[in-house]
């Protein structure tokens, strides 16, 4: 998929999101900041040793344990693979950052990974509950019916993968905006039951934010299905 950059791309795709997660979290960052020097030292030690040993593994006669089929032609000092340096740096940096954070919490008797997983599951459960609560709303039933009709139309007219991605995206956008609008309306009614001009404006603006993607979705739908329906007659 990435040609000669595949090794580099896989390394970055696997490591960078996890490194970013660890370092961008405010509570983890304070721990990592105090450990930054040690993390960097360990990373540099391994980034120096690792690529050399991998070079040995690949090039020593009778050993040649593995071989890179897709790699960029540039080499450090004419023999070290740039990808190996990036791999070692990213992997060790990630591992040592994780070690610093996790051991810090384990010292306090907490399993931070398990806590993170539980937190994630809980937020998904809440989000799905929100969808279930929303199922009783009139507007959602109308929009879901239109969405189902559009999907059946897509199957019937055999629309392309690009058209499918556009159709599904716009269904998600419209329903997503509708959920946000209903939540906001309920919240305002709850905290401010008395009628006022400002509250009316806020509610109308929120409703308008659903109308706009709905009109655009209608136009997109007409562009995709219009010519196909016209061709049938």
């Amino acid at each position: 998929m990435f040609g000669d950059y595949s090794y580099l791309a896989y390394t970055l795709l696997f490591c960078v999101p996890l490194i970013a997660y660890l370092w961008l979290r405010n509570d983890f960052f304070h721990i990592l900041k105090k450990r930054a020097f040690a993390i960097l030292c360990g990373t540099l030690i391994w980034t120096t040793i690792g690529p050399h040993l991998w070079y040995i593994a690949m090039h020593v006669e009778n050993l040649q344990s593995w071989k890179y089929e897709k790699a960029i032609s540039a080499r450090l000092f004419g023999y070290i693979y740039i990808e190996d340096i990036v791999w070692w740096f990213c992997f060790v940096f990630l591992l040592s950052s994780f070690w610093a954070v996790s051991t810090h919490f384990e010292d306090k008797g907490r399993d931070i990974v398990w806590e993170e997983i539980c937190g994630l599951v809980k937020s998904f459960r809440c989000a799905f509950r929100g969808l279930c609560v929303f199922c009783s709303e009139r507007n959602l039933i109308i929009e879901t019916s239109i969405a189902i009709a559009t999907i059946i139309g897509g199957i019937f007219f055999r629309i392309t993968i690009t058209e499918w991605s556009s159709v599904l995206l716009w269904i998600a956008v419209v329903i997503g905006f509708e959920i946000r609008n209903t939540a906001l309306e309920r919240f305002i009614t709850r905290v401010h039951p008395a009628k006022s001009e400002d509250i009316r404006d806020i509610k109308d603006m929120s409703a308008g934010s659903v109308l706009l993607p709905s009109i655009l979705a209608l136009i997109i739908g007409l562009c995709i299905f219009g010519p196909k329906i016209y061709a049938r007659f």
């Binding site: 595949s6 090794y7 896989y10 040649q64 344990s65 593995w66 071989k67 890179y68 089929e69």
Partner: peptide, 13 residues
């Protein structure tokens, strides 16, 4: 990586 042919392992050793 092996599946997409980024690297291959030698069989012999």
């Amino acid at each position: 990586s092996v599946r997409t042919g980024v690297w291959t392992y030698a069989v012999g050793d």
